[in-house]
Nucleic acid binder design. Sequence first.
DNA 1: GGTTCCCTACTCGGATAGAGTCTGTCCGAGTGTGCCAGG
DNA 2: CCTGGCACACTCGGACAGACTCTATCCGAGTAGGGAACC
Lengths: 163, 163
Amino acid sequence: MRTSEGVEWGLHCCLTLAWVGGADPVPSARLAAMFELSPTYLNKVLQRLTRAGLLTSAPGPRGGVRLARAPERITVMDVVAAVEGPDPLFSCAEIRQRGAGAEGAAVREFARPCGVSTAMRRAELAWRRELSAQTVADLAAGTPAASVARIRANYARLAGSSV
Amino acid sequence: MRTSEGVEWGLHCCLTLAWVGGADPVPSARLAAMFELSPTYLNKVLQRLTRAGLLTSAPGPRGGVRLARAPERITVMDVVAAVEGPDPLFSCAEIRQRGAGAEGAAVREFARPCGVSTAMRRAELAWRRELSAQTVADLAAGTPAASVARIRANYARLAGSSV
DNA sequence: GGTTCCCTACTCGGATAGAGTCTGTCCGAGTGTGCCAGG
DNA sequence: CCTGGCACACTCGGACAGACTCTATCCGAGTAGGGAACC
């Protein structure tokens, strides 16, 4: 079990958009050049963020993506859910209901979820709660000023060289 | 991202061992029959639990596995880590250090982990904390008595029919 | 009858295929821009 | 000089291969138990 690498890409792109993105859209190719990522695959990740309503995309020349909401209103959980999909970490297969002796059990016995599922879900909720507690704006505020300045300069350089 | 199904198998097997396992080892084939699981693949899952020190295995006739510790001293986190492996959910690829402008940045800028990594790790720690807070004994205590009785009866029936 | 040996059957353990998902790539549809011709 | 139309180039969006992990399977090494032969 490992989170897909696209999550990291998506978060860094949201941060970059929060810093350098104004009213003008940013092409995904430029974001890819910022971090030396595969442009086409990053495009796929940004597509998911767009479909989830976190970004808005504009086609044509001078097109690209930009944040659909203020960075304060985009949580890390939003980005993770958009990239990874809505499936929960742990999906209970209800193996307790299988087995030779299960069909004879009272249906009422399985009305409540089993303890295994409950325990895993409780941990997953804690995970989601922590992810929801931090926004893109929080991450941006916690970044050293030197890094922000470097990213802005790098972005300006790329924007000036037709990328 | 989805936890492997072996986690659920391992937890249910630990619970079953806590209920029906005494001094005698339980063969993995019987545990597989309890839940109608693939016997060989369950064997692989139990191998990981054994290698992690959660179970002890005995070869030969009348062999099998049993809990290596008291159920109170086996946490859900132990089982998850044993089955899934020690890798963290989120592994930071440090893409912030990539890109054309990165090599000119001061090394001191990257001394601290980036905010993305920190945020993801904080959520993962909350997840692990919740998993560590619950033991196999807790799960066993929370199971309805009817289910425990059914599992014990099912186990006795299987043990009597040379499985 | 007791003891020793051997043989069998059963167990775990690791090495070996198949399926599903993540990563990476390609090409087509759609759109805004800039240019050019005409008035 | 201003306006309308048009061709272009650039963007996103979805359809298409390759790689890796998860799932499932098979066979071999090792061991405890039971039975037979022997004393």
